[in-house]
Computed example of a mutant assay.
Amino acid sequence: MNVEPVTKVEKLFEWIDEMALAIQKHKDITYLEALAETGENLLDLEIKQSLPFEEKKKLEQQLKEEIPKEVQKEDVRKSFQLAVIKGMKEAVQPHHAMTPDAVALFIGYLAQKLTAQKDTLTVLDPAVGSANLLSAVLNQLSQTVVGYGVEVDETLLHIAYVLSELQEHHVDLFHQDSIEELAVPPVDVVVSDLPIGYYPKDDVAESFQLKAETNRSYVHYLMIEKTLQHVKDGGFLLLLIPNTMFEMDGNDRLQKYIKEHAFTLGLLQLPASMFTSEQFGKSIWMLQKKGEGVKQPNQALLAELPSFSRYEALLDMTKQIDKWLKDQGFAK
């Protein structure tokens, strides 16, 4: 028995998915490429592709009559997140992955708390992907915000564009390798689910302090160095890192580099239940770039987060984090 979608997110996803599948079939492109075109259709409220008459007529009627008129930004983001996850299952590129929704929202909560005393903000994701993490963060910030996203994959960048436009975020997107070139102004906050692995361009890595002494350099080390250069003095970095990062080759040089340029505010280990095995576990690394008036916290915030499904335990943890932020002078 078929169950009709009941929420705005489900209803919007159903149309997005049906539209993307139709475009994928008739244009012989990937689901993710079709999803980007679907976003353009939703943005302009018209179907631009050449589809069979009856199919196009049905989708146009749904677009005009069935898509909820008042869709919140988070509903749009979550609908597209579901579609992007579906598309990534067919994608073969190893970098096609998405930050879990609860984690993206938690990083947004941290960004909001750390920057509560600012009226305007600039936020950068140097590996923006489909902009799910960046969008989740921007949706939680109450200030006037300009976002920047950098992505080497053209299809994901196209999705990031339509997703940002649909949510009415002011986001400037760049089709670049953010390690080789990062054409953005200094920003207040960097958020990123760091890509993990080796960086293929040895000639580019050569100019970095955190390049490997032998063999290939780690892309995540280089991205940390690059983004630290693009954060304003006193600015913040909220990075999703593997728990094994501090055991990797060159960790001693990474730690030395961080001590020279930033303070570690905290390290929040994500629940083990989120990952298929312990070796894939991740943490949120909170950094603040050194600058005038910036002090090392009395005590770094080190914690293992409870399961995001355990509401009471998570509420208790956020209260502890709120108190720590107030004690350090971040939150109002």
Results as ranks from 00 to 15, higher is better:
G234N: 12
D322G: 11
K78A: 05
E206A: 08
V171E: 03
K56Y: 06
G235L: 02
T115Y: 06
E74Q: 11
K73I: 10
A111G: 09
T120V: 08
E10M: 12
Y198I: 07
A127W: 01
Q299L: 12
E180K: 15
L133K: 07
W285I: 07
T115A: 05
L240E: 15
D202S: 14
Q209K: 05
G129K: 05
L173H: 12
L182R: 06
L314D: 14
Q320F: 03
I67A: 04
P52Q: 08
T99F: 01
T318K: 15
S277Y: 00
P126R: 03
V184D: 03
Q328F: 07
M19H: 08
T318N: 10
L35D: 06
V162L: 02
S277G: 00
A111Y: 04
K57S: 09
I23K: 05
E65C: 02
G250N: 06
D17N: 14
Q24T: 04
V191E: 07
L240Q: 14
I196A: 03
V123T: 00
G87T: 12
M98T: 09
L63K: 00
L138C: 10
I196H: 08
G293C: 08
F308R: 02
L239K: 03
P271R: 07
T99W: 03
I67V: 13
A22F: 05
L222C: 05
I284T: 03
P195S: 05
N251W: 10
V190W: 00
K256P: 01
V190A: 09
M248E: 14
K8P: 11
P242T: 12
A20W: 00
G149S: 15
M88K: 04
P185Y: 10
D172I: 15
K282P: 08
L210V: 11
R77F: 00
Y148N: 01
L267W: 02
L194Y: 03
S50M: 00
K259I: 01
V9W: 01
V189K: 10
K64I: 02
Y161D: 10
T227F: 02
T214Y: 06
W15T: 00
M88N: 11
V71R: 01
T264R: 10
